[in-house]
Simulated scan of single mutants.
Amino acid sequence: MSTEEQVIAAQRGDHEAFHHLISSKKAKLYSIAFAYLKDETDALEVIQEMTYRAYTQLSKLKEPKYFQTWLTRILIRICIDEQKRKRKVMPLFQLPEQLATDLKLDDKILLEVAVDLLPPKLRHIIILKYYEDMTLSEIANLLEKPEGTVKTWLNKALIELRIALRKGSEHVQHI
């Protein structure tokens, strides 16, 4: 059964279809939640809340083919709400494994700090593009923004990161 067929079945009250839909996406959902919240318990709690909201609002999903995007959008909104609610200092952004192995320790630390200091909309683009390996059109669809806007934000984020890294490496060399 395709994802679209499972969504339609779940919308008609098939609890098993809904369970299968959520279960098949759990690793990706956890990865996104953890990238935002940096805490296993918090990530699991927001996934639970996302599951509840998705279940209660499934009838509002008009296009079953966009289920993954719709679900991820709900998750991101809950993660942002959780960040605001806790008002806590978030631990450093965790670099994707591939990028982390190619950098020296000083550069890793500088990059993690620089990503954490980006404005939220730019940080979201960096997390989704480089940590979650999403395409620009997937990010645009997820954030409900034109692809050109996402490209502009990505470009701005990369420029800000380059500036921060240049300043940071100059500062580290002087120490």
Rank of each mutant, 00 (worst) to 15 (best):
K104G: 14
E147S: 08
A10T: 06
C79N: 13
F67W: 07
A100D: 12
N155M: 01
E132T: 05
I47D: 00
L61F: 03
E160A: 13
K151N: 08
V7I: 02
G13L: 11
Y36G: 06
A54M: 07
S24Q: 11
R12P: 01
E49V: 12
A33N: 01
A43K: 08
M134Q: 09
I74W: 14
I76E: 13
L128W: 01
L105P: 10
L103F: 10
G13W: 15
S23P: 00
Q68M: 00
I175H: 15
P96F: 08
R85L: 11
R53D: 07
L95M: 03
P64N: 11
T51V: 04
L37V: 10
K60F: 08
R87G: 15
L92T: 05
K129A: 11
K104S: 14
A10R: 05
E4V: 13
I74T: 14
K28T: 13
F67E: 15
V113L: 06
E138N: 10
I175T: 11
K28M: 11
E147L: 04
T72E: 15
P64W: 03
I32R: 05
I74D: 10
L92Q: 08
I163K: 15
Q68F: 00
K26S: 14
K25N: 14
I175W: 14
A10F: 02
W70K: 07
D116N: 09
L158N: 09
K38N: 10
Q83R: 15
S137A: 06
R87T: 10
S2F: 11
L71P: 08
H15L: 03
H124G: 05
E45Y: 11
E4S: 15
W70A: 05
E147N: 12
